[in-house]
Nucleic acid binder design. Structure first.
Length: 548
RNA sequence: UGACCCAUGGUGUAAUGGUAACACUACUGAUUUUGGUUCAGUCAUUUAUGGUUCGAAUCCAUAUGGGUCAACCA
């Protein structure tokens, strides 16, 4: 499409990203951002960031700031930062031009009366009794609407098109309405505000937007978009539509996201379970992974439901290259190495920070005779093909030694409290001369060197693929286990120096990032995504692993 | 029961009248000091019926299915 247009029709492509500042951007907007900015980056040209702030009742500066931050974070630069409200003077003139051409009139009907006049998709509408006012009277009334002489809702300016039009959008649509409301940018200057249709295409025209890209629900508006451009005799921008991207197990609707925030189902717009850009950012998603995701899902006009698994694939792929490997035990089981010197004996073992990236370097990790391993990495009566620790079995401790489980210690009620193992001194990582081969490798931390950290494990926010498609309220389908907090996980000491800019892979546990709730008194990590896990204990035994 | 938009493996997207493909998922196997990564492979696709054409996913018609439109929201 763009290539044809480049053949002489336009010298350059100009697009715009037009958010309404009444909420935070979500993953669906990311698609639109990547499309609009990506197109002009590819074909040459530029993209404006234009806030569609024509409704002062719902719009706030807080949202403007968050939107700018999110677009920048995603890695895009806009040419001009603009606001539909910048054009209010010009738009008002445009409205008067329509009146003068006999193409718009002031209507005193109430919204109920107007709805009744409108007809239905299968029946034509009826003309408003105010439809044939004189140009002079319309002009006078419209000026007085602006002057603040009339209360909210008492009058509107409507286009004079055709109340029997097959396209209901064309049945004398409202162009301007009275609102004595404080606007986040123009303050109390205006008493009338343009509707979307009276502002969007006109703003596009003023900016010489060549491709005004929006979602499918605006298809019927295109006829009005073109009509206004024609009658106003302004730059002929063109509107193109694509289907919004839906992702399963979440919602991408500002209204619904706001409900989750206001009704405290989540901690805020940037709760890591939210589909907002700020939520994904806090969760540990990278801009690269989100852009890659948007590229992969593409654009089309058909209804769609993208698998969240693809988003997870994209972030795993990116993080695998970037994340520093660390060892953290979530649910500790103490392990004593009986043939290793006790007391203050320790040694520092070298291990790579990222096997996928030599430049990431190496670090030292402390080893001693008392370690923690993951409780789930031991089974007293293992099924076959269990590669982890079990009585009499051997495993490798990552970057350390091969150990053998000699004895299982239990408390009075039979719970396993401790494991006694022996290590093979010749099996030390890097210069293993033992000749022993083991299938399993476990992560571990030294008890006396470990630090504690809070770890927040997230799962999908909804239990069903499409909560808006289910009976009843979408909030009835919230996954009660979407957040699992490990209050005190045991981490290798290196993590004391965790940084917000760095990404981590806790070996065998997933990808993690430092959360903003971290303070000097305690550090907090968010799990971005689990590692892919192809281990299945037994047919139909434990089912799906958490977070997958 | 009006108009408009849409229909390609489980999912998403290509194929511009000329061999239906790519990615994700799932499943095999190899490698692996992460049951990760990597590598090799397997399963699986044009909604239906007609028509035009030497040739149709593509063009036409009809049907079916899904979506949108009756806010002083965007």
């Amino acid at each position: 499409m763009e290539e044809d247009l480049k053949n002489g029709r336009y010298k350059q492509i100009i697009t715009r990203f037009p958010p309404e500042p009444n909420g935070y951007l979500h993953i669906g907007h990311a698609s639109s951002i990547c499309l609009n900015f990506g197109l002009t980056k590819k074909y040459g040209g530029y993209t404006n960031l234009r806030f569609d702030d024509t409704n002062p009742a719902t719009e706030e500066t807080e949202y403007v700031e968050s939107i700018k931050e999110d677009v920048k974070w995603l890695g895009f630069e806009w040419k001009h930062e603009l606001y539909a409200s910048d054009y209010f003077d010009q738009l008002f003139e445009y409205a008067k031009k329509l009146i003068k051409k006999g193409l718009a009139y002031v209507d005193d009907s109430t919204s109920e009366e107007m709805a009744a006049q409108k007809g239905t998709p299968t029946e034509p509408g009826k003309n408003s009794p105010y439809r044939n006012r004189s140009i002079e009277e319309n002009l006078d009334l419209f000026e007085r609407m602006e002057a603040g002489e009339f209360p909210d809702g008492s009058r509107t300016l409507r286009a004079k098109i055709d109340m029997a039009h097959i396209n209901m959008i064309m049945r004398d649509p409202v162009l301007y309405r009275i609102k004595h409301e404080h606007h986040h940018r123009t303050g109390d200057k205006w008493n009338v505000y343009p509707m979307y249709d009276m502002a969007h295409g006109q703003s596009d025209a003023m900016e010489h937007i060549t491709h005004s890209i929006c979602t499918l629900e605006f298809v019927p508006h295109r006829e009005l978009y073109d009509w206004l451009i024609e009658k106003l005799e302004i730059y002929p921008s063109h509107q193109y539509e694509f289907a919004r991207r839906n992702i399963n197990y979440t919602v991408t609707s500002k209204r619904k996201l706001m409900q989750l925030v206001n009704e405290k189902y989540v901690a805020g717009w940037d709760d890591p379970r939210m589909s907002t850009i700020s939520g994904l950012r806090r969760r540990g998603y990278t801009p690269e992974s989100i852009r890659d995701f948007c590229d992969r899902i593409g654009v089309a006009k058909r209804e769609n439901m993208v698998d969240v698994g693809l988003l997870e694939f994209c972030v795993r792929e990116d993080l695998n290259k970037k994340a520093l490997r660390r060892m953290v035990v979530f649910d500790p089981l103490k392990l004593v190495i009986t043939n290793y010197p006790s007391g203050n004996a320790e040694e520092y073992l070298e291990t790579e920070n990222n096997p996928e990236d030599e430049k990431a370097g190496v670090r030292k990790i402390p080893f001693s005779n008392e370690l923690y391993i993951e409780r789930e990495d031991f089974m007293e009566n293992p099924p076959k093909k269990y590669f982890r620790l079990a009585p009499g079995q051997m495993v490798r401790l990552k970057s350390a030694y091969i150990i053998k489980c000699d004895e299982v210690i239990k408390d009075a009620s039979g719970n396993v409290t401790e494991l006694h193992c022996s290590y093979i001194p010749e099996s030390r990582s890097g210069n293993d001369t033992s000749g022993i081969n083991v299938k399993g490798t476990l992560h571990w931390v030294s008890v006396k060197h470990a630090i504690t950290a809070e770890v927040r494990l997230y799962d999908r926010l909804f239990k069903v693929e499409d909560p808006t498609d289910e009976a009843g309220d979408f909030k009835d389908y919230i996954n009660p286990e979407s957040l699992h907090v490990v209050a005190a996980a045991f981490a290798e000491p290196e993590l004391k120096n965790a940084k917000f800019e760095e990404r981590y892979q806790f070996i065998r546990k997933g990808y993690f990032t430092l959360d903003k709730d971290s303070s000097t008194s305690g550090i907090v990590f968010n799990r971005t995504v689990t590692l892919k896990d192809s281990w299945k204990p037994a047919p139909a035994a434990t089912g799906k692993k958490e977070g997958k």
